[in-house]
Design a protein around this nucleic acid. Structure first.
Lengths: 343, 343
DNA sequence: ATTTGTTGCGCAACCGATTGCATATTAGAA
DNA sequence: TTCTAATATGCAATCGGTTGCGCAACAAAT
């Protein structure tokens, strides 16, 4: 255990009376090294408990073999699941992953990117924070010439590959379903933020209504931050309308949950009097009573697909390939909260 | 934007007709550099858009200024909250954080530690995976001479600082509360794993019973993996007993949730017929119907405290200081699922 | 026997920043 | 005026691998 000084390839070299170059090549399976030498090196390395210093290697060929992932928060099932998909692939390719959280905070997002850049990550995969409206920090990533891929919370303000789900379609399906269940006054919780996912969901809502001949009513579209409390407030506001809604489609599960609480507190029957649907298929949605209808986003698939595109770009040396835009199909998960007409 | 080659201190030096040493010192605020030179260097650095290469610096003085955090999974509110607490402090001290997930997988835990070690992190903060029973990989961290601090899922098999909550006390409080609500046959969901938290919770359960003169009944203690499905199975098993329990204390919120589902499916009244309590205060516990009684673990505090101890150790050069063991007090959160006697 | 390859390994530069020691310049002290 | 001491900067080694180029040794081809 005399580990005072870390053992290096030079130690191995000395012990075998060869040079560090040979040791390095042996360890890297360079074909120009004889089988005999390689075996000896490997054996000695094990004996001395040699641990490669990746920092030195990283310095030498300018690649850290680390990729950065930026998510608004890691404690949302959706994001952590995407991360897992990415991680799996990265690990297989022998890349390490730094997960950073922006907490939907613009300043923190900038800092995070700075940190990742100066840590010399080989590339960055990100989902944009809710409050971000300026994308210069992302442009800096591209200016460095390292790959950048966005997922879910993306933007068209950047020339970049992105993987998202078809939010429009998901929303459309939800609203169509609510209509088919008999709803005629369907409210929608949305966000004022410039993130495209919310705009797309709103568009899906509005188009579905119009396709089924239901007028779009401004007072039924409530803007908020879509958290639990926001859902509560929005619902309370809706209940004060002369004509209350008979269905609510929230662009987030938490928002829908808030609505559910308020409705239950006011003794409304869900879904008979008011049907309810969220978006994201957060695990808790199956725990509520009634269980919440929502839209699944195939997060693992999104992670895998994102990683695929990312590493493709990485391998290709990040040439100015045409940015790809992958749109995955979401799935409507129908649960009790919207089944007015039975299963 | 001619950023083909990254600018280095040598570029700055050349432009100013000085040497890289001077530039380095100027950038590091070394007092042996004249104010004039320093200003010039800073200005030129900005002009050329110089970005320090931390990898080179890391190689030079053997410190990466990166710390590794290992959690079983980042998508559990508890863990991500602890992580956030750690992150906050780390960022303030200008350290970066790599978050790694072991997914409660022993092999992956080992790989992760290897990866972090060869990434030359300056220290590691970890919560042990459920299935880990051998701790040699953690000993390797210590053998490297870098600080290691464990939180929540800890072990006494290692001479290491640890931060945990008083699981015994938390469990005791829950059971005491259930007894005070009138429960006399209280079941407990526990895990067979060697992680101390579950053993402590079991001990709290058992002691509370004994303190209140209630016999410990083996058939009421069900072992499982404590996930949702496990909770369901355990509850189903309990309902087949000749004498069913009138209270259930699950060592995990998910387990309690599974029990709740089964009880509701079988039309049992919660809490009147069976009172229910979990452990962890996962956000979803306030969304269930009835809302779930549980134990809060002050995750942010745990994160802060963990970081505090960790950096203390790091600053002190990781001398063989006596490992500290911090035990935080948990808080019982009483909700409807256990309020037999009203609020 | 000479040429042409092939194989296996060493030499030395290099990645970018840091730092102990040396040196030059200037100021202050004797 | 000469000596001492700061002050400001340069020199060169170093961190631990990696890699282009070169060379020796031996085999195969002519």
């Amino acid at each position: 255990m005399e580990n005072k000084t870390k053992v290096t390839i030079h130690d191995i070299a000395e012990k075998l009376n060869i040079t560090a170059s040979t040791v390095s090549r042996a360890l890297n399976n360079n074909p120009r090294i004889s089988e005999l030498t390689r075996k000896a090196v490997l054996k000695t390395a094990k004996q001395l408990n040699y641990q490669p210093n990746h920092i030195a290697a990283a310095l030498r060929h300018g690649k850290s073999h680390i990729i950065g992932i930026i998510v608004p928060t890691a404690d949302r099932a959706f994001f952590s699941s995407v991360v897992r998909g990415i991680e799996d692939m990265a690990n297989n390719l022998n890349y390490k992953v730094i997960i950073c959280q922006s907490y939907d905070n613009y300043e923190k997002e900038i800092q995070t990117i700075d940190a990742l850049l100066s840590a010399r990550v080989d590339g960055i995969i990100a989902s944009i924070g809710k409050n971000t409206e300026n994308f210069d920090h992302f442009k800096r990533i591209q200016a460095e010439g390292i790959p950048l891929v966005l997922f879910d919370r993306t933007t068209d303000a950047l020339e970049v590959s992105q993987v998202m789900i078809d939010d429009y379609l998901g929303a459309y399906k939800v609203v169509e379903h609510l209509i088919q269940q008999g709803c005629r006054r369907i409210a929608h919780f949305t966000s004022p933020k410039k993130v495209s996912i919310f705009k797309e969901r709103l568009r899906g809502y509005s188009d579905a209504l119009s396709d089924y001949g239901i007028p779009y009513d401004e007072e039924l579209v409530v803007q908020s931050n879509l958290q639990l409390v926001d859902g509560r407030e929005s619902m309370e506001k809706l209940l004060k309308l002369k004509e209350r809604p008979d269905g609510v489609f929230s662009a987030s599960d938490y928002g829908a949950m808030g609505a559910m609480q308020v409705l239950k507190e006011n003794k409304f029957k869900i879904p008979q009097e008011v049907a309810l649907a969220g978006f994201s298929n957060d695990p808790f949605t199956s725990f509520t009573d009634p269980a919440l209808t929502t839209v699944d986003q195939f997060s693992m698939t999104m992670g895998k697909k994102t990683a695929e595109i990312f590493f493709e770009q990485l391998k290709s040396g990040n040439k100015e390939a045409v940015p790809q835009k992958i749109v995955l199909k979401p799935e409507l998960i129908i649960r009790e909260s919207s089944m007015k007409r039975g299963a």
